[in-house]
Write a protein that binds this DNA or RNA. Structure first.
Lengths: 155, 155
DNA sequence: AATAAATAGATGTTTATACATTAAATGTAT
DNA sequence: ATACATTTAATGTATAAACATCTATTTATT
């Protein structure tokens, strides 16, 4: 059964291919988000918390400041301070005072954090592999288009 | 200045073009969402409330049930009942009792609701026109890819 | 050095979201 | 017709998001 955005939001006509794409992008992104949530909720974390954990793991135990985490987040408006709080309570991350700048706070992932990510890896990979219905070239092209879309901001 | 997802989330390498695309899609969608929010907050509505209003306008004064609104929403998990509540308080929509099914509630957009949408139209169009940096054909292809992405659910 | 400005992060507060439950009306089965 | 299940919408509740404000520290200015 072929399900297009038309049937999904029960809209027969779109003003232009651009409107169709815009709505499809928002709709699909919401859909992807809920798919991700389904994965995470069994492990009692949110997508945002997961994003922080991934950034921390990428550091390979090199401490990273809260502000730097924010810079790497997919959602730039998220309150990283509170997200780290949540991870702290669950023993998934640790705060360390920053010697050279006492305003800053260094964050590191814990063993438990790494273990959780490892458990989640196969599911997230599966989530990501949805995209492999596209050819690698199309994926690159697609990605470049998204980059271009955001460019309209810095002219 | 060229800004790619790499610089935006300060990640140099991606596991595959698919991971790059997946993160880019989430990131860009968040970004688009905030751009939309900027438009709406001056008029004291949310993106979700706007979505409901658009659906109501599409009905051209033909009443529509709350459950049907939900089916047409871009975010399927939204609590339409509460969204309609908000619109009601602001006099942007009206509730009407449904004669043939007394469980259901019919909703219609008001004059004020239509006026608000008209004021927002140029801004939303501008938001949508970001996508016209792509060719119409690419937009169609892109949209078809998104449809295909969600297909993996119903096999 | 003293004052002002900027930065980092935490916190307060209001609103929205996620998820479950409830209540009423309708549909279905025996 | 009665009992049970389903649908429709509203509500309860805990958590998270959006946005502003505050405090401590560092940097810049005069």
């Amino acid at each position: 059964m072929i399900m297009s955005i038309e049937t999904d939001i029960k809209q027969k006509k779109f003003r232009s291919p651009y409107q169709r794409l815009a709505l499809n992008l928002v709709y699909t992104s919401n859909w992807l988000g809920y798919k991700q949530l389904e994965i995470f909720k069994d492990y009692d974390i949110t997508s945002q918390q997961y994003n922080v954990l991934r950034i921390l793991r990428g550091q390979k135990s090199v401490p990273i400041k809260v502000s730097e985490i924010t810079e790497r987040m997919l959602d730039k408006n998220s309150n990283t301070s509170r997200l780290v709080d949540k991870l702290l309570v669950k023993n998934l991350a640790e705060r360390k005072s920053c010697p050279n700048d006492r305003r800053a706070v260094d964050v590191v992932i814990t063993k438990e954090g790494l273990d959780l990510l490892e458990k989640l890896d196969p599911f997230v990979e599966e989530w990501e592999n949805r995209f492999s219905i596209i050819s690698p070239d199309d994926a690159e092209r697609f990605s470049a288009l998204l980059d271009k879309l955001r460019e309209s901001d810095n002219q």
